[in-house]
């Protein structure tokens, strides 16, 4: 059977590794290429790079980062942040990214998902969704709303409806990122993850809130996620990737243990 995946997310700003709490106060915490290689050697299953560079003239720095990582890390590499067109996606793919994450630009123009999936294949298009909990309403029946622009702009769009639309338009995988849980280390948003994971047929990656190995176990079981995304808990050295995987394996989850 398929193993549950542990994925590390590296936010990159101007070529440096950054980490935010609730999407603000980003700090520079190291070299993304070095970190990626370190995690790869320690058994990481997949890497996600998120470009949070503010200015578009510095975007080429990201292509260099992707290229350096791709020449020394031989696991799937997913890249997102600022992908607005098929040509953005193609540039990143040529630099060595396997999968492309689309987010804000797809909310503004959903056809981007269709275009990317026909250009590079469904399996390589990941729809990343930033989601916050709100009161249930006619507009937002699930009680979870899509937010874009790095957590600043609520869109009045229901998260469950958007997940289903994204799948229909050809997204091969979904990232469920809870803004409420992001950076708190209090655990993933289980209710949100389970709601979406049970409604779609594509794999779901849970993101935001991981602080303890137990949190990964919870979201991969109760949350029905196929993969758990981690950031601060490994970036600051609180846990090693291999420790997290060892813990999940000890809990009898199917985990890749030889690398």
């Amino acid at each position: 059977m398929l193993s549950k995946r542990v994925i590390a997310c590296l936010d990159v700003r101007d070529g440096h590794l950054a980490k935010s709490v609730k999407f603000v106060n980003t700090q520079n915490i190291g070299d993304p290429v070095e970190k990626a290689h370190e995690y790869y050697l320690d058994g990481l299953d997949e890497l996600v790079f998120y470009d949070i560079t503010a200015s578009s003239e510095k975007r080429n720095i990201m292509l260099d980062v992707v290229e350096s990582v791709a020449s020394q890390v031989f696991i799937p590499l997913s890249v997102g942040g600022g992908v607005r067109s098929v040509s953005d996606a193609t540039d990143l793919r040529l630099a060595g990214a396997e999968k492309i994450n689309v987010n804000s630009a797809a909310v503004k123009r959903p056809e981007l998902i269709d275009e990317c999936s026909s250009a590079i294949g469904n399996q390589n298009v990941v729809l990343s969704m930033d989601i916050q909990k709100v009161a249930k309403s006619n507009e937002i029946p699930s009680g979870y709303e899509i937010v874009i622009n790095g957590g600043r702009s609520p869109m009045g769009l229901d998260a469950l409806a958007w997940a289903l639309e994204g799948e229909k338009r050809g997204a091969g995988e979904l990232v469920i990122n809870s803004i409420d849980a992001d950076g708190t280390k209090d655990g993933y948003e289980i209710e949100l993850t389970a709601m979406i994971a049970q409604a779609v047929r594509v794999p779901v990656i849970a993101s935001g809130g991981a602080g303890l190995p137990e949190h990964l176990y919870e979201v991969l079981t109760k949350g029905h996620a196929d993969a758990a995304l981690v950031a601060s808990m490994v970036h600051y050295g609180d846990y090693k990737v291999s420790e997290l995987k060892g813990y999940l394996h000890d809990q009898r989850l199917k985990i890749r243990m030889s690398w």
Partner: peptide, 14 residues
């Protein structure tokens, strides 16, 4: 595709 617990494509490590 009739088993809802199995996702297609088969994507990941096996």
């Amino acid at each position: 595709m009739d088993r809802l617990d199995l996702k297609v494509p088969h994507m990941g490590w096996n």
